[in-house]
Amino acid sequence: MASDSILLTAEELFCERDDRVLFENLNFSVKAGEILRVEGPNGAGKTTLLKIVCGLMPLRDGELFWKQQRLADVEQDFHRNLLFLGHKTGIKGDLTPLENLKHWSNARLYCTDRELMDALAKVGLEGYEYSACHSLSAGQQRRAALARLHLAGVPLWILDEAFTAIDKQGVAELEQWISAHALEGGAVILTTHHVFQSEAPVKRIVLGQ
């Protein structure tokens, strides 16, 4: 695996919200095998930055590149290689974890029911596959969303506060998955206020200074 291959490059990003400059002249790149941690106090623009990178928010100024090509030109290819998990996970309370995962994956990849069940077992939802999500705890609902990490064969994970509502053991497991993903040639961009430990190299950018 060419570990020095650059997946994502950001050049001279600029963003303002409500007449407040959140960041300007922001440059960074993410290589395969790397973890990029976005830091900063509340309201510093971490979520905004992640959404801009995903293409959910428009780019005011600057340029994003996916594998050296302008991101706007290869957006579908980029989305094929991206898994984004935001504050709001898109988990439907009226559906079970299995249905949620199935309908999320239906539009994206081919998965067998066995793979779906395995993914749910890995996030500790074994035995809850058929309970409606609204009856599960906040942490379990978050875990149901995290099960996507075990399905999607995508190189780039973008995780916004993925550790929210997850218990100690779950946090340790998630850290391990993130490290493993990076060590196997994937890349992760994440924000967290939690002390993050990883065996893979972690780059940092700090917003709001």
């Binding site: 990849l109 081919y110 075990h150 999607a152 064969g153 190189p155 196997e184 040639g185 994937g186």
Partner: peptide, 14 residues
């Protein structure tokens, strides 16, 4: 190794 498959395998979309 499961992750390895996901991180590097060619992705086929429906």
């Amino acid at each position: 190794s499961q992750t390895a498959r996901s991180a590097t395998a060619h992705i086929e979309n429906p």
